[in-house]
């Protein structure tokens, strides 16, 4: 199985350890992983701002980089959701369709495609609370949503439950958006920061030592808010926990 490793721009720049954990994790499960050197971004920042034409070339580049893989896997629900559900600026060729259909967020890839049942190397004896990115949740459906009347499920929880010693705790508003919202975080800075601070307070109140998520973007924002408020909560990507990070 040839897997193209998709490392979103902010993971590349700020959280290389998340890309490393994703790569190692996929290799542990026998995937033939390659990292296309010419990758940049998925185009979401422009599309999110309404500028579809401006994201066309970036989307085309993405397709050129990843068209030859069986699967494309990235540690970010938000970017994967963009590729799968909003990749509309490019002409919908067979290659584009292939890329859209075979791009997976790491958790769903482990859960649905590899159907992983154990992480023998993983041990994380800490209280952890889970944050689901809104796109991962409502776009990729990695877990049931509190707004809908549906059977409860959570792919990231399923995976985390296989980690020795890890104790999951809940916050009071689990599905509430943290306010990152891509370019929203910059253009509508005040509301964004307030939402992030509220989220960080909720997380700290839960007694969790760590927040984990399959999205670094939300956590980058939340961590920035937590630091500003002087809260002790630590933030770690789910790929790192599943790959056996100790703390």
């Amino acid at each position: 199985m040839r897997v193209g490793l998709f490392v979103p721009c902010y993971v590349d720049a700020f959280h290389p350890e998340v890309g490393q954990a994703t790569l190692e994790l996929l290799e542990r499960f026998g995937c033939d992983v390659d990292y296309p050197f010419d990758q940049t971004c998925c185009g979401q920042p422009m599309t999110n701002t309404g500028c579809h034409k401006e994201s066309k070339a970036t989307e085309e580049l993405f397709v050129r980089n990843f068209k030859d893989f069986d699967y494309i896997v990235g540690p970010s629900g938000s970017c994967v959701n963009h590729v799968r559900n909003n990749f509309d600026a490019v002409e919908q060729t067979d290659e584009v369709k292939h890329v859209r259909e075979h791009t997976y967020e790491l958790v769903e890839f482990l859960h649905d495609v590899l159907k992983v049942d154990a992480f023998p190397w993983a041990e994380f004896p800490h209280k952890v609370t889970l944050h689901n990115n809104c796109n991962a949740l409502r776009g990729l459906n990695i877990a049931s949503m509190t707004e809908l009347r549906e059977k409860k499920f959570s792919k990231p929880r399923d995976l985390l439950s296989k980690v020795k010693g890890l104790e999951l705790v809940d916050i009071t508003r689990p599905d509430e958006c943290c306010g990152f919202g891509g370019t929203f975080s910059v253009f509508e800075e005040a509301t964004s920061a307030r939402m992030g601070q509220d989220k960080a307070r909720d997380q700290a109140k839960s007694g969790a030592e760590y927040v984990t998520s399959s999205d670094s973007s939300c956590m980058m924002h939340q961590e920035g808010c937590a630091r500003r408020l002087g809260l002790p909560t630590k933030y770690i990507h789910i790929a790192q926990i599943l790959n056996g990070a100790r703390a």
């Binding site: 490392v7 721009c9 902010y10 993971v11 590349d12 720049a13 700020f14 959280h15 290389p16 350890e17 998340v18 890309g19 490393q20 050197f37 971004c41 920042p45 370019t183 975080s185 910059v186 253009f187 800075e189 005040a190 964004s192 920061a193 307030r194 992030g196 601070q197 980058m220 924002h221 961590e223 920035g224 808010c225 630091r227 500003r228």
Partner: peptide, 26 residues
């Protein structure tokens, strides 16, 4: 490319992420 403008609105209510020694790419 993430900030888009010279006025750094990010830090009004948040801290900046720290910059790692090298990018994933490197």
């Amino acid at each position: 490319f993430m900030l888009y403008n010279r006025m750094n609105t990010w830090t009004r209510g948040r801290e900046m992420p720290s910059v790692p020694k090298e990018t994933f790419h490197q």
